[in-house]
Design a protein around this nucleic acid. Sequence first.
DNA 1: GCTGTGCATGACCGC
DNA 2: CGGTCATGCACAGCC
Length: 139
Amino acid sequence: MLHEINSPVENQIRNGRPRGDVRGKNQLLPRYWPRITDQELQQISGDSNSVITPLFEKMLSASDAGKVGRLVLPKKCAEAYFPPISQPEGLPLKVQDAKGSEWTFQFRFWPNNNSRMYVLEGVTPCIQSMQLQAGDIGN
DNA sequence: GCTGTGCATGACCGC
DNA sequence: CGGTCATGCACAGCC
């Protein structure tokens, strides 16, 4: 039988370049709050003086880790941590995990009922490599 | 014929 | 009642 995919994803976004990013929108749901501690961020950051913004922690669902490689991104989190995108194509997002591995995902959204559904594409290799557990840092 | 991408619908949860 | 998330179905493109 298939076991459900309940792996928490610890993501951090690394902002080495201020680009109108909005930090301070820390009003996400408690379920999405990153479990990472500030010390961890410091460790990940290393000797770099780049600004690290902790991302969210999401429970991967069947579709998220499916062969399609599509990971559904909660709207609250997406709008809070990622820059507002007006185009469905979105933009390529470079992500670095705590291990130092870099992954590139396609951050885009689909038109939904009255809102937009944010999705992360290209997560298959990443998930596959880290066995459904990822601590990522976006640049 | 098969695979991939996109969209739409349904269900669930929160307010 | 509204909003969001997840899954499924459909269409298109390529092998």
